[in-house]
Protein backbone atom coordinates (compact mmCIF):
# COMPACT_ATOMS: atom_id res chain seq x y z
CA UNK A 1 0.00 0.00 0.00
CA UNK A 2 1.09 3.51 -0.57
CA UNK A 3 1.77 5.52 2.53
CA UNK A 4 -1.58 7.10 3.29
CA UNK A 5 -2.39 10.65 4.19
CA UNK A 6 1.05 12.11 4.30
CA UNK A 7 1.46 15.03 6.69
CA UNK A 8 1.45 17.59 3.90
CA UNK A 9 -1.82 16.27 2.60
CA UNK A 10 -3.35 16.34 6.04
CA UNK A 11 -2.29 19.96 6.34
CA UNK A 12 -3.61 20.72 2.88
CA UNK A 13 -6.97 19.21 3.75
CA UNK A 14 -7.12 21.12 6.99
CA UNK A 15 -6.17 24.29 5.16
CA UNK A 16 -9.01 23.72 2.72
CA UNK A 17 -11.63 23.46 5.47
CA UNK A 18 -12.39 27.19 5.84
CA UNK A 19 -13.10 27.66 2.15
CA UNK A 20 -15.07 24.41 1.96
CA UNK A 21 -17.13 25.52 4.96
CA UNK A 22 -17.75 28.97 3.55
CA UNK A 23 -18.97 27.41 0.33
CA UNK A 24 -21.07 24.78 2.07
CA UNK A 25 -22.64 27.28 4.46
CA UNK A 26 -23.45 29.69 1.65
CA UNK A 27 -24.79 26.88 -0.48
CA UNK A 28 -26.92 25.11 2.09
CA UNK A 29 -27.75 27.95 4.41
CA UNK A 30 -27.13 25.82 7.46
CA UNK A 31 -23.97 25.67 9.49
CA UNK A 32 -24.62 22.20 10.91
CA UNK A 33 -25.46 20.71 7.58
CA UNK A 34 -22.52 22.47 6.03
CA UNK A 35 -20.15 20.96 8.57
CA UNK A 36 -21.54 17.49 7.90
CA UNK A 37 -21.07 18.13 4.24
CA UNK A 38 -17.47 19.19 4.73
CA UNK A 39 -16.78 16.17 6.91
CA UNK A 40 -18.28 13.84 4.30
CA UNK A 41 -16.19 15.58 1.68
CA UNK A 42 -12.97 14.97 3.58
CA UNK A 43 -13.82 11.31 4.17
CA UNK A 44 -14.75 10.86 0.54
CA UNK A 45 -11.56 12.57 -0.55
CA UNK A 46 -9.41 10.38 1.66
CA UNK A 47 -10.99 7.20 0.38
CA UNK A 48 -10.51 8.37 -3.20
CA UNK A 49 -7.05 9.78 -2.89
CA UNK A 50 -5.78 7.43 -5.57
CA UNK A 51 -8.01 9.30 -8.02
CA UNK A 52 -6.52 12.65 -7.22
CA UNK A 53 -3.84 13.67 -9.68
CA UNK A 54 -1.00 15.09 -7.72
CA UNK A 55 -0.04 18.50 -8.89
CA UNK A 56 -3.57 19.44 -9.90
CA UNK A 57 -5.77 21.80 -7.95
CA UNK A 58 -6.67 20.08 -4.69
CA UNK A 59 -9.25 22.69 -3.81
CA UNK A 60 -11.07 22.29 -7.10
CA UNK A 61 -11.14 18.54 -6.55
CA UNK A 62 -12.51 18.95 -3.03
CA UNK A 63 -15.11 21.45 -4.17
CA UNK A 64 -16.21 19.01 -6.85
CA UNK A 65 -16.71 16.31 -4.24
CA UNK A 66 -18.55 18.65 -1.91
CA UNK A 67 -20.76 19.94 -4.65
CA UNK A 68 -21.64 16.43 -5.83
CA UNK A 69 -22.40 15.31 -2.28
CA UNK A 70 -24.60 18.34 -1.82
CA UNK A 71 -26.58 17.54 -4.92
CA UNK A 72 -26.89 13.80 -4.35
CA UNK A 73 -27.20 13.18 -0.64
CA UNK A 74 -28.88 16.44 0.03
CA UNK A 75 -31.26 16.38 -2.86
CA UNK A 76 -33.87 14.72 -0.70
CA UNK A 77 -34.01 17.80 1.40
CA UNK A 78 -34.16 19.93 -1.65
CA UNK A 79 -37.36 21.66 -0.73
CA UNK A 80 -35.64 23.22 2.22
CA UNK A 81 -32.65 24.19 0.16
CA UNK A 82 -34.61 25.66 -2.71
CA UNK A 83 -36.35 27.78 -0.16
CA UNK A 84 -39.79 28.32 -1.63
CA UNK A 85 -40.96 30.17 1.42
CA UNK A 86 -37.87 31.83 2.73
CA UNK A 87 -36.85 29.14 5.20
CA UNK A 88 -33.24 29.33 4.03
CA UNK A 89 -33.24 33.05 4.59
CA UNK A 90 -34.84 32.52 7.96
CA UNK A 91 -32.12 30.14 9.02
CA UNK A 92 -29.42 32.46 7.84
CA UNK A 93 -30.69 35.11 10.16
CA UNK A 94 -29.63 32.87 13.00
CA UNK A 95 -26.06 33.21 11.87
CA UNK A 96 -25.12 36.40 13.69
CA UNK A 97 -24.60 34.10 16.67
CA UNK A 98 -21.92 32.40 14.62
CA UNK A 99 -20.08 35.66 14.32
CA UNK A 100 -21.81 37.11 11.31
CA UNK A 101 -22.56 40.77 11.22
CA UNK A 102 -25.99 42.13 10.79
CA UNK A 103 -25.10 44.22 7.80
CA UNK A 104 -24.88 41.12 5.63
CA UNK A 105 -28.42 40.15 6.37
CA UNK A 106 -29.95 41.77 3.31
CA UNK A 107 -27.33 40.19 1.15
CA UNK A 108 -27.85 36.72 2.59
CA UNK A 109 -31.57 37.03 2.17
CA UNK A 110 -31.13 37.99 -1.47
CA UNK A 111 -28.62 35.23 -2.06
CA UNK A 112 -31.09 32.73 -0.64
CA UNK A 113 -33.64 33.76 -3.25
CA UNK A 114 -31.45 32.70 -6.14
CA UNK A 115 -31.98 29.33 -7.79
CA UNK A 116 -29.34 26.99 -6.38
CA UNK A 117 -27.51 26.56 -9.69
CA UNK A 118 -27.04 30.32 -9.94
CA UNK A 119 -26.06 30.63 -6.29
CA UNK A 120 -23.53 27.86 -6.72
CA UNK A 121 -21.98 29.38 -9.84
CA UNK A 122 -21.74 32.81 -8.27
CA UNK A 123 -20.15 31.44 -5.10
CA UNK A 124 -17.55 29.51 -7.05
CA UNK A 125 -16.57 32.33 -9.38
CA UNK A 126 -17.36 35.43 -7.36
CA UNK A 127 -16.27 34.29 -3.91
CA UNK A 128 -14.24 31.09 -3.96
CA UNK A 129 -11.84 32.41 -6.54
CA UNK A 130 -12.28 29.78 -9.23
CA UNK A 131 -12.03 30.61 -12.90
CA UNK A 132 -15.06 30.11 -15.11
CA UNK A 133 -13.31 27.05 -16.51
CA UNK A 134 -12.67 25.57 -13.08
CA UNK A 135 -16.23 26.29 -11.99
CA UNK A 136 -17.53 24.61 -15.14
CA UNK A 137 -15.43 21.56 -14.38
CA UNK A 138 -16.61 21.50 -10.76
CA UNK A 139 -20.26 21.72 -11.82
CA UNK A 140 -19.87 19.41 -14.78
CA UNK A 141 -21.28 21.88 -17.28
CA UNK A 142 -20.14 24.16 -20.09
CA UNK A 143 -18.17 27.31 -19.44
CA UNK A 144 -20.88 29.33 -21.16
CA UNK A 145 -23.46 27.89 -18.80
CA UNK A 146 -21.44 29.03 -15.80
CA UNK A 147 -21.02 32.50 -17.27
CA UNK A 148 -24.70 32.70 -17.91
CA UNK A 149 -25.58 31.56 -14.39
CA UNK A 150 -23.15 33.99 -12.82
CA UNK A 151 -24.55 36.83 -14.88
CA UNK A 152 -28.10 36.00 -14.01
CA UNK A 153 -27.18 35.62 -10.35
CA UNK A 154 -25.54 39.06 -10.27
CA UNK A 155 -28.37 40.63 -12.13
CA UNK A 156 -30.95 39.14 -9.83
CA UNK A 157 -29.00 40.15 -6.74
CA UNK A 158 -28.64 43.67 -8.03
CA UNK A 159 -32.35 44.02 -8.51
CA UNK A 160 -33.16 42.34 -5.19
CA UNK A 161 -30.75 44.62 -3.38
CA UNK A 162 -31.57 47.74 -5.38
CA UNK A 163 -27.88 48.16 -6.01
CA UNK A 164 -28.61 51.00 -8.43
CA UNK A 165 -29.89 53.37 -5.82
CA UNK A 166 -27.24 53.08 -3.20
CA UNK A 167 -23.71 54.34 -3.27
CA UNK A 168 -22.08 51.71 -1.18
CA UNK A 169 -23.14 48.19 -0.45
CA UNK A 170 -19.94 47.32 1.32
CA UNK A 171 -19.25 47.09 5.02
CA UNK A 172 -20.26 50.73 5.22
CA UNK A 173 -23.85 49.76 4.71
CA UNK A 174 -24.18 50.06 8.45
CA UNK A 175 -23.54 53.75 8.05
CA UNK A 176 -26.12 53.80 5.33
CA UNK A 177 -28.60 52.09 7.62
CA UNK A 178 -27.84 54.62 10.31
CA UNK A 179 -28.39 57.51 7.93
CA UNK A 180 -31.62 56.07 6.72
CA UNK A 181 -32.84 55.27 10.20
Amino acid sequence: MTPDPEPELREALLAAVPSLRAFAISLSGQVDRADDLVQDTILRALSNLHRFERGTNLNAWLFTILRNLFHSEYRKRRREVEDPDGSYAGRLKVQPEQGSRLDFEDFRTALAKLPSDQREALLLVGASGFSYEEAASICGCAVGTIKSRVNRARFRLASLLNVDDIEDLGPDSMTRAALQG
Binding site: F107, L161, V163
Partner: peptide, 25 residues
Protein backbone atom coordinates in the same frame (compact mmCIF):
# COMPACT_ATOMS: atom_id res chain seq x y z
CA UNK B 1 -23.20 47.44 -9.84
CA UNK B 2 -21.27 44.30 -10.59
CA UNK B 3 -18.41 45.49 -8.43
CA UNK B 4 -20.72 46.34 -5.56
CA UNK B 5 -22.35 42.93 -5.68
CA UNK B 6 -18.92 41.31 -5.84
CA UNK B 7 -17.57 43.31 -2.93
CA UNK B 8 -20.54 42.45 -0.78
CA UNK B 9 -20.33 38.78 -1.69
CA UNK B 10 -16.64 38.59 -0.85
CA UNK B 11 -17.13 40.47 2.40
CA UNK B 12 -19.80 38.02 3.50
CA UNK B 13 -17.66 35.10 2.38
CA UNK B 14 -14.49 36.38 4.04
CA UNK B 15 -16.34 36.54 7.28
CA UNK B 16 -17.25 32.87 6.94
CA UNK B 17 -13.68 32.02 5.97
CA UNK B 18 -12.38 33.66 9.11
CA UNK B 19 -14.46 31.55 11.43
CA UNK B 20 -12.26 29.19 13.41
CA UNK B 21 -12.10 25.65 12.06
CA UNK B 22 -14.34 23.49 14.26
CA UNK B 23 -12.40 20.99 16.35
CA UNK B 24 -14.21 18.10 14.70
CA UNK B 25 -12.13 18.48 11.56
Amino acid sequence: SQKRIGDQLRAMYDELMQQPVPDRF
